[in-house]
Structures are given as structure tokens and as C-alpha cells.
Amino acid sequence: MSAVQLLLVPLALWVLQASLCHGACVEVDSDTDAVVNEGFKLGCISCKMRAEVPAEATVEWSFMPKGESEFTKIYSYEDLMSDTPDERFYERLYWNGSKKTKDLQDGSIYILNVTWNDTGTYRCIFTRTLTFTSFKFHNDTTKIVHLNVVPRLTRGIASILSEVMMYVTIVGLQVWLVVEMIYCYRKISAQGEEALRESTAEYLAIASESKENCAMVAVTE
């Protein structure tokens, strides 16, 4: 098994466990740096913990510009329909969440043509209703995204260190595999030489015994 495969196995097991526990839903935080004049995905995921229970959910997004103190409703998604009441985002916000279902778990939206004025705090509210046999349960979940608009993306120190550590881990695993291969080769080689010596000694013993038998037959004659 290669070093990359060794790294991927734990990740695959983690994804499988998350899928089994949360119905293939994993809550991941949204990115926070958007490039001006480009598109950007505002992530908002709220996993339903009771996958076997029927449910419906609605999503509402609000925006508070940098320097202000109040949120303004900018987008809503309910019954497979969306609405953008804020003129600043008209025809710039599009649904990027769960498709063809009212049982929403991904409430992400996509912003087209990001501007400097889009800098600020975004609030995503999931309103979920779970339908049990004898009652309905309502639950609200709030996610906050602090968006920063930048001229271009730059890699942070954490990202660089993470990549360096990944390569160090890969190289370390490769070195370990080489050492293991050398150790196994030497062990197998030593066992082969020992077996060869034993076979040679056994052959010589048989040859010597045969020679003695032949000599005894000659003397008897």
C-alpha cells in the first residue's frame, strides 16, 4: 500500500462514519474570503440528526454590512422557491443548497459578482420541523459567516504549514516503507542462506553415507 493510500484510509473511514451517523451530511464551515468581481459560495449546512424522521426546513439569509449594527433579510428559500427582497443582491444570489427536496440540510447560496460592499456579516437561519407519530418538533439553527472581500486570494501561514506537514508525512511514510522493505529482504535472504546451508549439509551427509555403503559392499565382495 502506497503512502498516499495510507493517508486516505483514515479519511475514508471518517467520511463513512459521518455518512452512517448523519445521513451523508457533514457540517463544514463556510469560506470567509471572497475575491472582488468573482463568484463566492456562502456555506450553511445544518444536518438532521434523526435521519429516519420526516422533516421540512426553510432557510433565511440576512446581511449586516461592515460598520452597521442591524441585519437585513436578503434571501429566503421555502417550498422549493426562493426570494431576494434586498435590491442590493437582486439577480446576484442563487440557491446552492439541497436540491429537489423540502428536507433541507444544505442551505448554501452563491453570490455573483462580489463587490466591496458585500463585506460584512451574513446570518443563515435554518427553521426545521420534524414530524413524529403524535407530534411535530420545531428547531432553529443559526450559522454566522464573516465575509471579507479581497482583491485576490493569498495563502495563510496555517495553509502553508498544513501543506508542508502533509509532504513531511508522505516522505516519512515512504522512508518507513523503504526501511521495512530492506529489513524484510535481509530477513528473507538470511533465511534462504540458512536453508541453503542446511540443504548442502544434508546432501553431503547423504553422499558420505552412500560412499560408506558402497565401500562396505566392495569389501564384502
Rank of each mutant, 00 (worst) to 15 (best):
M1K: 02
V4G: 09
L6Q: 02
L8F: 11
A12F: 10
L13V: 08
V15F: 09
S19W: 13
L20A: 09
G23C: 12
G23W: 02
A24Q: 03
S30W: 08
D31E: 14
V35L: 01
V35N: 05
N37F: 02
C44Y: 03
C47G: 08
M49W: 06
A51Q: 13
V53E: 06
A55V: 05
S62A: 15
S62H: 13
G67K: 13
G67F: 12
G67A: 15
E70D: 10
F71S: 08
K73S: 15
K73V: 15
D79Y: 13
L80T: 01
D83H: 07
P85N: 12
E87K: 12
F89W: 09
L93I: 14
N96G: 08
T101D: 00
Q105N: 10
Q105P: 00
D106E: 11
G107C: 11
G107V: 05
Y110G: 00
L112V: 10
W116E: 12
T119K: 08
G120Y: 05
G120Q: 05
Y122R: 13
R123K: 15
C124K: 03
L130M: 09
L130D: 14
L130F: 09
T131R: 09
F132S: 03
F135W: 04
F137V: 02
H138M: 08
D140P: 10
T142I: 00
K143E: 00
V145T: 15
N148E: 08
V149S: 04
R152Y: 07
R152D: 07
L153C: 02
T154M: 10
T154L: 11
G156W: 02
A158T: 11
A158P: 03
I160V: 06
L161K: 02
M165F: 08
V171Q: 06
G172N: 01
L173T: 00
V175D: 01
V175E: 05
L177P: 00
V179R: 11
V179T: 11
V179A: 11
Y183M: 10
C184D: 04
Y185W: 13
R186S: 08
S189V: 00
Q191E: 15
G192K: 01
E194L: 05
E194F: 05
E194Y: 06
S199A: 01
E202I: 01
I206A: 14
A207G: 06
S208V: 07
S208R: 14
K211H: 05
K211C: 07
K211W: 06
K211S: 07
E212W: 07
C214Q: 00
C214H: 00
A215W: 02
A215D: 01
V217S: 10
A218S: 03
A218G: 01
T220V: 03
E221A: 08
E221N: 12
